[in-house]
Design a protein around this nucleic acid. Structure first.
Lengths: 338, 338
DNA sequence: CACTGGCACTCCTGGACAGGGAGTGCCAAA
DNA sequence: TTTGGCACTCCCTGTCCAGGAGTGCCAGTG
């Protein structure tokens, strides 16, 4: 394919993204210094359409890029434009004020939404990839405990535990010592094995309670594949005149479904630094008209993903830059707290 | 005012709520057995309009209720219709499966959204009205602690604390004992006073650290007027054809502002069992076209509020019943965990 | 005196239709 | 290979008209 044809495609993508209207041959010839006439551009456009990169909403309208067109743009044409110094400063300042892990996530998701003017989604650091820092048992009533688990990423999980027998203060201390001895510093991935042997290590009269505790621990650790996510910027869906063809309904609904959001952020396997899924490339049916830009983050290894969701017609260079920058800085912060 | 006029108003409210279209005199006369002709209804409607209870979108259209009309309906006409047995069972089952306080709140807000088909908002139990169950210190690095506070409503707060000096394991245990001795069982309202004296009670070499700790505690307890809220059902905003006159934009934005949501749920002072704010009665500008139904909840005393937000044109009897029922049941659950 | 039927009037709504404009495809010429 | 010209297509907008729903008012009735 011609170099000029690529330039024409770029012009169409850029103009369409900024004006939101089909772009015609004349506009391309005028606004972008290609040094050729509109008629020539028309020929190139006919070619690009034939090749499936652009399409016409109807005869006698300008062209708009297809998903395939955007893909080519992202892969070969878009130069990522770095954040401005002011933006960079704002990111640093805003995130460094976070007071705990929850706050880091909350701030991150807001920041992403604001920077990109799109819907942002941030996954809380995944439990499976972190390790146990501390376990705490608090007795609420004689037969009811609260179990609090703190991980090295600073995440706190809490669960109620009903105990089969009444426990003394002493019993609780015993149990706490036991679980901490066994689990402290262990990766959560290894935890199930250890937890299995927990009941056997307790004093005979505490066996039943210890196994109740073990069950709850397993639930929070293993069965806890449902991971939490934070969302912000839903209001941006109404930007640019309701970008989703149909109603907002299904989108808003999907945004409240954690399962869907997790799917959106991509399976754990994707360790790529940054992923862009355009249109059909999305597995989630409701987001077939959207683009999702995601990045992994974490101290050293990836413990979670973050990303933004927007119309396929989005500012790719800007969005990609923002997601990447934020993911990097959040990783740095987590690194510091190790 | 005539009894029959009230019946006409009720008819208009009910029909408009269900059909979402201005209701004319003929429809009222036919569908509701008032025993009078359409012409008579017309006269009554003229009166009701004069009195400000209903209005015409334009000449030669049917009538729709005004905020004042809804108010009268709620105060004098609407008989709350209790939840069906099935709904009641569903509420109990769904909420009783909650595994911790966060989960109670999450489930509650979803439940409300689903039952009422509107946007639901639930405030996390307010810190100020609960008391300290336990404080836990975990050292992350030699100069960095994590402070975890557990309250008797089951809420967990966490904060990082930078310590001015390196701490040994022993030091941390000492500090933990100290803060627990001083604060355990104390109401958070009384906490600031106690926290003030904390540093003075520590070993001399731990004074500096203790006062850093005290500062963070004060921040989480006192300055923590910003309270968390959960939202669900935003997708319901698109029901019934975008009920808000303008765009969804401002509403979606407001729903992400915690400050606004707190305002929406009403100031702490409102200890009324159930509040209905219709249209202008709302202080928040963006919600002038909406109705907010809120209720307080808590074990014994009110520790938080919950509510739903919908069009003034809402099913008042059903919504009020749902909010009341859910608030009651959540209160029961909290009571059990005391 | 309250209620009723009838009637003229208002105003919204949806469909049909024409004019203007933007953009294209194609062709012949440079 | 590029260019200017030209006919053509199709959307968009505004206008117009008929249909329909609902009202207000008035005169008549029990």
């Amino acid at each position: 394919m011609d170099d000029r044809k690529l330039e024409v495609l770029r012009a169409i993508v850029e103009d369409y993204v900024s004006t939101q209207e089909p772009v015609g041959s004349k506009a391309v010839a005028q606004r972008h210094a290609l040094g050729v006439s509109a008629a020539t551009v028309r020929n190139d456009m006919a070619y690009l359409e034939e090749a499936g990169y652009i399409q016409q909403p109807h005869t006698s309208a300008g062209r708009i890029p297809t998903a395939k067109g955007y893909r080519l743009f992202v892969d070969r044409l878009g130069k990522i434009k770095p954040l401005s110094a002011a933006e960079r400063r704002a990111v640093h300042r805003f995130l460094s004020e976070a007071i705990d892990l929850d706050d880091v996530v909350t701030r991150t998701v807001r920041l992403l939404a604001q920077l990109t003017h799109q819907v942002a989604v941030v996954q809380y650091p995944s439990l499976n990839r972190s390790s146990v820092r501390h376990l705490e048992l608090v007795s609420l009533t004689p037969t009811r405990l609260m179990l609090v688990m703190i991980t090295d990423t600073g995440r706190v999980e809490q669960r109620y535990v009903e105990t089969p027998a009444e426990l003394t203060e002493e019993d609780v201390l015993d149990l706490r010592r036991l679980v901490n001895e066994q689990l402290q510093g262990k990766a959560l991935a290894d935890a199930p094995r250890i937890i299995g042997g927990l009941a056997g290590l307790a004093r005979p009269e505490l066996r039943a309670t210890a196994s109740a505790l073990a069950r709850v621990l397993l639930e929070s650790v293993v069965a806890r594949t449902e991971e939490r996510v934070a969302v912000a910027g839903a209001a941006n869906l109404t930007r640019n005149g309701n970008f989703f063809a149909g109603s907002l309904r299904p989108i808003l609904e999907a945004l409240e479904e954690e399962v869907v959001l997790m799917q959106l952020l991509g399976r754990a396997d994707s360790n790529a630094l940054l992923t862009v899924r355009i249109g059909d490339e999305n597995e989630v049916a409701d987001f077939r008209e959207a683009t999702v830009v995601t990045a992994g983050y974490g101290p050293g290894s990836v413990v979670g993903h973050m990303g933004v969701l927007g119309p396929t017609r989005m500012d790719y260079p800007g969005t990609i830059a923002a997601v990447r920058a934020v993911a990097r800085y959040v990783s740095e912060i987590l690194e510091q707290n190790r």
